[in-house]
Structures are given as C-alpha cells and as structure tokens.
Amino acid sequence: MAITNDEVKKIAQLAGLQVTEADIATYADNLSNILNLVGQMDNADTSEVKPMAHPFDNSARLRADVVSEQDQRDALLAIAPETESGLYLVPKVIEE
C-alpha cells in the first residue's frame, strides 16, 4: 500500500498539521512503509472475531451527578497563550 503525495496533503489537513512541500515525499515514504508493516494483519482470519477496544472490555463507569470539581477558571486561563476578559483569544473566525 503506497501513499501518494496528494494523500499526505489530505491526511495532514485532516490532522490539522502544516507540512512543507519538502517534507511531503518523506512522509509519503514513511507512511507507506508503516502501512506495509501493518498490512501483515491481513494474514489473520478475523471474520468471526469481535473487536476489542479496551483491555478486559471495561466500559466507562457511571457516577452520581454531583459537583466534584472546584472553579479553576483563573488558574486555567493563566496558562493560555492569549486571553481577554476571561476568554480565550483566537483569530477572527467569521469574516465581516
């Protein structure tokens, strides 16, 4: 299974990663090699097997709906790159 340069661009876009033109061929090569390795999975017949997402098939535990966390708004905003009036700042999303 070979990954093309165009596929690398598409994957990078889905992953929210900027890739430079210079890196695209290397990624295509690396990702193709990894897919060749994982392609060995096709050797196993799994038609009757149920997928296992978690060890011991444990699922998320339920708890009572009570407040367990204290307000840490200031502490959490203090580590953000840019804030104003208690809000996170990002570049404008909706054009005028």
Binding site: V8, I11, A15, L35, M41, A44, P51, M52
Partner: peptide, 22 residues
C-alpha cells in the same frame, strides 16, 4: 498522520477495526 489515516472514512474497517480484532 498514521492514526488520522487509519481512522479516516474508507480505511477505518481495514485498519482500525482489523487491529481491534487482532
């Protein structure tokens, strides 16, 4: 990137689901 690819539409069954079965 590999994870994004394995979870993307069209490849999920062939890679991610297959891996969970193994």
């Amino acid at each position: 990137m590999i994870g994004t690819y394995a979870l993307s539409a069209g490849y999920y069954d062939a890679y991610y689901l297959k891996a969970l079965k193994i």
